[in-house]
Simulated scan of single mutants.
Amino acid sequence: MSKVIVAPGKYIQGPGELDRLAEHTGQLGAHAFVIADEFVMNLTGDRVTASYAKAGAAVTMERFQGEITQAEIERLTARCKESQADVVVGIGGGKTLDSAKAVAYYCGNLPAVVVPTVASTDAPCSALSVIYKEDGSFERYLFLPSNPAVVVVDTAIIANAPVRLLVAGMGDALATYFEARAAQRAHKLNIVGGHGTQAAMALARLCYDTLLQEGIKAKAAAEAHVITEALERIVEANTYLSGLGFESCGLAAAHAIHNGLSALEETHGAYHGEKVAFGTLAQLVLENAPLDEIEEVIEFCLNVGLPVTLADLGVHTVREEQIRRVAELSCAEGETIFNMPFEVTPEKVYAAILTADRLGHLYKGG
């Protein structure tokens, strides 16, 4: 079986890059269809239109309604086709970016340019969109034929975003190495149907090492709304290293458990990366990882403010039937949990979730 590594065509990161957006998209098309939600449109809209006006290029702006459902994708796709745009741009958080990638695909695989305004997930670099139901629960993955043509990250915007979002991105990135390691040990295929390369595994490991070395410093910088080298490195880890690592190495239990948790209404106030962080702890319990490794992960989570208990995710009353339902959904047909290098059952996942929760309480001291 072939080894495959995938990546966006170009990754650009630095302060002020949003002001050069028309320059970045002009290499791909003459008319940009820009998607952003109400908040991000108000935050960045003037800079975006100024960039296109300066370049003398055409741009159509469309508001994203807030949830990436099939209906919303179809609405945006129709608007894009009406505009006759030839490049699609998403500006905002993970759901907006995933919507832009999906719209580009449904419009005939137009080039997609993504501009994250937060470093909260590893969605920007991937050839993947996560589709949700109207109630906010996970529905399916939409696998795309190509990665974004360009990823543009303006770190000045990231530095002024809510700190919790940067931390949530660290939670998403936290899973990258451990899921990659599990998939490699099981000789499972990655997201694009090949085996992971040495380069991809090295990036996944670098992602984890960067979190441990720079995470606390980056959070402090974000709290002060300033750009430091630590912040730049964490933004790269959350966005690029994690994105390439998960897609080119594979997902495993952490994200599957996230998908199960998303069905609990109590967790809807938690961000994707926060649920993935707890899923990572549950995965380590599931595989009976060494205690020092589990302690290292819990210590990191506590230091930066990531969840280590179900209560941290909003589940203050743990009911057996609910957690068993989470375990069953985590083990649904086609889930990535079956990339673990051993047999996985809902019963094992149920036990891992409850044990992870108890360990979290133990190390929190309550």
Score class of each variant (00 low, 15 high):
K3R: 11
V6P: 00
A7I: 06
P8Y: 11
G9Y: 11
K10E: 15
K10C: 09
K10G: 03
Q13Y: 09
E17Y: 05
E17T: 15
D19K: 14
R20P: 00
A22F: 03
H24R: 08
Q27D: 02
L28Y: 12
V34D: 02
E38S: 13
M41A: 13
V48S: 04
Y52D: 06
V59L: 09
T60V: 05
T60F: 06
M61S: 02
R63K: 15
I68H: 08
T69W: 06
A71Y: 03
A71M: 08
R75I: 13
R79T: 07
K81W: 02
S83A: 15
Q84V: 02
V88K: 07
G90S: 10
G108P: 07
G108I: 13
A112Y: 04
V115T: 06
A123D: 11
C125G: 13
C125H: 09
G136A: 13
P148R: 08
V150S: 00
D154M: 09
T155M: 08
N160Q: 14
V163F: 01
R164H: 13
L165F: 15
L165P: 05
G169H: 12
G171W: 06
L174E: 08
A180N: 09
A183H: 04
R185M: 13
A186L: 00
L189A: 07
V192I: 10
G194Y: 09
L203A: 14
C207M: 07
C207G: 03
L211T: 07
L212F: 14
I216Q: 09
K217Y: 07
A218T: 12
K219I: 09
A221T: 10
E223R: 06
A224D: 12
A224F: 02
I227S: 05
R233C: 02
E236G: 05
N238C: 10
L241R: 10
G245A: 12
C249V: 13
A252Q: 01
I257W: 08
N259A: 09
L261K: 11
S262T: 15
L264P: 05
G269W: 06
L281Y: 00
A282L: 01
L284R: 04
L284C: 03
L286F: 08
N288E: 15
E299P: 00
F300S: 03
L302P: 01
P307A: 01
T309W: 00
A311K: 01
D312N: 06
V315I: 14
T317K: 13
R319C: 10
E320M: 10
E328S: 13
S330I: 01
F338C: 04
P341A: 13
T345Q: 03
Y350R: 03
Y350T: 09
A351Y: 01
L354P: 08
A356G: 02
D357C: 01
